[in-house]
């Protein structure tokens, strides 16, 4: 395969054609935050944390959803990108329970995020109660960012079951089951591939939830 030249933060790197900018930039050592993207499920482009500047493009592009091109000049760090990522991180952390997301915690610190400067949460996310409707895993949607990895794992990306569904718009948009049914009636096959890909701890094995409860 003929590798193609790409400049990442001033550094010339050789990338495989078809690779994503995210992949190439990470290999070049750039620390780009990313929440929604998942190789296996194909989820991409929702969280916008991995936006990078690409020379000649009018606005930042999501690195996870952009394919490298020969001669592409990519910049993953700038004041503007930092501000942008900080704002998104702050809004996520303001609206969502991020207590189990260790990556989020480190980014909040790295970006000196101050979620409180936006005032009170506007969505009802944090008020969502855990849903314990099956023998295998618990859904704690107060911790859900809408990255949609679970939806893709359940449907197109891996399992082809489509037990999970999506509802609502704006900040109240949320993952749910088909017809809001209990998982046990939703066609779910409990493969747990949604738990596997969940980056926030919103989906948690029952055994783990029980252990955590014991510890509290």
């Amino acid at each position: 395969m003929n590798l193609i030249p790409v400049v990442v933060n001033g550094l010339l790197v050789w990338a495989e054609p078809g690779a994503t900018v995210l992949n190439v930039a990470q290999k070049a050592g750039a620390g780009i935050p990313t929440l929604c993207h998942h190789e296996r499920t194909g989820t991409k482009g929702h969280c916008r944390l991995c936006l990078v500047e690409i020379a000649g493009r009018p606005r930042p592009e999501p690195a996870c959803a952009t394919t490298v091109e020969s001669g592409m000049v990519v910049n993953t760090e700038s004041e503007e990108l930092t501000d942008l990522r900080r704002t998104v991180l702050e809004l996520v952390a303001l609206e969502t329970n991020v207590e189990h997301d260790v990556k989020m915690a480190s980014w909040l610190e790295e970006y000196r995020a101050d979620p409180g400067r936006w005032g009170d949460p506007l969505s009802g996310r944090r008020e969502r109660e855990p849903i314990r409707d099956n023998a295998f895993f618990v859904r704690e949607y107060d911790k859900c960012y809408n990255c949609r990895r679970c939806l893709d794992a359940c449907g197109e990306g891996i399992q082809g079951v489509w037990a999970l569904s999506f509802t609502g718009r704006v900040a109240e948009a949320a993952v749910t089951t088909v017809f809001d049914l209990p998982l046990t009636e939703s066609g779910c096959v409990f493969c747990g591939n949604c738990v596997q890909v969940c980056p926030t701890g919103a989906l948690v094995p029952l055994e783990e939830a029980l252990l955590a409860e014991e510890a509290r």
Binding site: R40, F136, F190, C191, N193, Q196
Partner: peptide, 11 residues
Amino acid sequence: NYGALCVKGRF
């Protein structure tokens, strides 16, 4: 298995 499991292995 490329990141996937079924209910038996998982739970």
